[in-house]
Write a protein that binds this DNA or RNA. Structure first.
Length: 298
DNA sequence: GACGATGTTGGCAC
DNA sequence: GGTGCCAACATCGT
């Protein structure tokens, strides 16, 4: 479900609600312990209870919460000179159907809610007081990782550049060094971090490129067009709060509207909005792929 | 009721 | 290096 624009939207919402707040209580279901948590459930709960959110950021499709453990004086209820409390990462990936929503605890708990985090009361009274994790298909992942000054957990270091940060030159260089089909590369998180099936199809359409085109054979001009298409597409999608195809909602539970502006994704068999030809569906890299046989060149 | 599809990643065989 | 198949899981449409 959530690709870069959806995760970015969620992160911005969480940023308005979480930093500075302490988690009073964390509860996870057995299904979460078995399928979602990559950190043993008891350890996960123990570390988060009492910890405070320092910052929220996006890394590809991952949500990174920088957490501060309670200080010794806090946990003993004593007043001691403040010592720098140890920090750690709380990393979440929403898979296909994960949701992370911050809301008032008075709301009914939706089905498939696999974790809830009760927050210290918001002094301003505005933001929600519970963060819940809901995930129908349970493909999402959550884990804790050690904090270290000079970087992220090793697993995340393997991911490629962010599509909104990579320069045009660097994108061209990386693209033309590869023999794979271009859509496979766009989906490969080690090549670029953040694109998924929707935005891969959409930016290939915008750039007029066949998803099956071999990366190294793409002309310089068309590769440049792909870089521009990718950026403008992602920025527009973020501005529209992302695409809600079925389950996606932002950190306050609201759907996005960018799905209404998709030009190819989910439109196989319908007419191309640019030339009127029938959009075709194929399989590339094992994923359903829609393209315009007339507008998109090999 | 069966079947195939769905935004994700990761492992394995070839 | 690249591809294809399968796995996890629940739901929905044909």
């Amino acid at each position: 479900m959530p690709e870069l624009p959806e995760v970015e939207t969620i992160v911005r919402g969480l940023r308005a609600c979480l930093p500075g707040r302490r988690i009073e209580r964390a509860v996870v279901t057995p299904a979460a312990a078995a399928n979602i948590l990559r950190t043993p459930a008891a350890e996960f709960v123990r570390a988060l209870e009492g910890a405070s959110v320092v910052a929220v950021q996006r890394y590809g499709k991952h949500i990174l919460l920088r957490m501060a453990a309670p200080t010794a004086s806090q946990s003993r209820g004593q007043h001691r000179p403040a010592r720098r409390s140890p920090q750690f990462w709380w990393i979440a990936h929403l898979g296909m159907t994960g949701q992370l929503v911050c809301e008032p605890s008075s709301r009914p708990t939706p089905p498939h809610t696999h974790a809830r985090f009760e927050l210290q009361a918001d002094p301003a009274g505005g933001a929600g007081d519970v963060l819940r994790y809901t995930d129908i298909r349970q493909f999402g992942r959550m884990e804790l990782a050690a904090w270290n000054e000079n970087g992220l957990p090793a697993r995340l270091e393997q991911l490629g550049p962010d599509p909104l940060e990579i320069t045009e030159e660097e994108f061209l260089r990386r693209l033309r060094a590869r023999a794979a089909r271009v859509k496979s590369l766009l989906l490969d998180q080690r090549f670029l971090r953040g694109l998924g099936n929707i935005y891969a199809d959409e930016c290939l359409f915008r750039a007029g490129l066949r998803p099956s085109a071999q990366a190294r054979r793409i002309s310089r001009a068309r590769a440049a067009a792909l870089w521009h298409a990718m950026r403008s597409l992602l920025e527009e999608a973020i501005a529209h709060g992302g695409s809600s195809v079925s389950d996606y909602v932002d950190a306050s539970g609201q759907a996005g509207v960018f799905q209404n502006l998709h030009q190819v994704y989910g439109r196989a068999g319908q007419t191309c909005l640019r030339c009127g030809a029938a959009l075709r569906r194929t399989l590339v890299a094992g994923r359903g792929t829609t393209f315009c046989p007339r507008c998109q060149r090999r």
